[in-house]
Amino acid sequence: MLIIGVDSATWDVILPNLDRLPNFRKLMEEGEYSTIHLNQKPWSPEVWCSMFTGLLPEEHGHHDFVVNNEIVRREDIKAEFIWDLLDRAGVSVKALNVPFVVPPYNFNVDFEPVAGGVPVEQDELLEEIERVTQKALEVLRNSKPEVFIVAYTALDKLSHLHWGEPVLVDFYERVDEAIGKLIPYDDEVLVISDHGFCDYDAAPIRTLPRRTPKGEIKGDHHPDAILIKKNIPCEITQPIDVFYCIKARYLGD
């Protein structure tokens, strides 16, 4: 099973631009797609953590990238992730660039984080897409595991600073190309975001102040995330369902 996480991806950008996103379109046609209306706060560290632990934020206890002026590491989170379970059960599993912590987390993959783990500038975001894709292809070609999880964070930073601008669609195109390179390697594919995006003024929650040292924030998180699945029968309506879906497929109920 190939799980591709796309931080911040939203139908609001994908659907009106499908003619420029052929791989999203292809997957949507070959599989099924839906919207995840988050019951939890659209906050990346919590949602990605829920997705791969099957626990709600109050259960996994991981709420932020930084707590008490210290960067939170995987070891600080007292929960078992799906890759821990699979690995222990002898199911081969790898995870690349999963952004519930900074730098994003890798499991059974050696990966030097892009821009120190927090890519922000456009050249760094492009570098992330390129290097993550390259590493993912290396994994898929040479040592493909039964479960491979790979995530891209670029759209989040870009959406905050450039929501509503043409450059955002350019970056969706880059992510679409990346997805196009990965999906031929697996029949069972899941593409999922941790939350959506919308105009800053329309956002139901504010994850960032309007003015930051990087400039004015134009967009913010929306609780509608995307889901596309191909050859995956389980029902996924919330992030935690991803954990149970993978678990059921490889470890049984």
Partner: peptide
């Protein structure tokens, strides 16, 4: 990827 670097980047983003 030193701590200060990551913290500054997050702060710059307003996190």
């Amino acid at each position: 990827q030193d701590k200060e670097g990551i913290m500054k980047r997050l702060r710059d983003l307003g996190y």
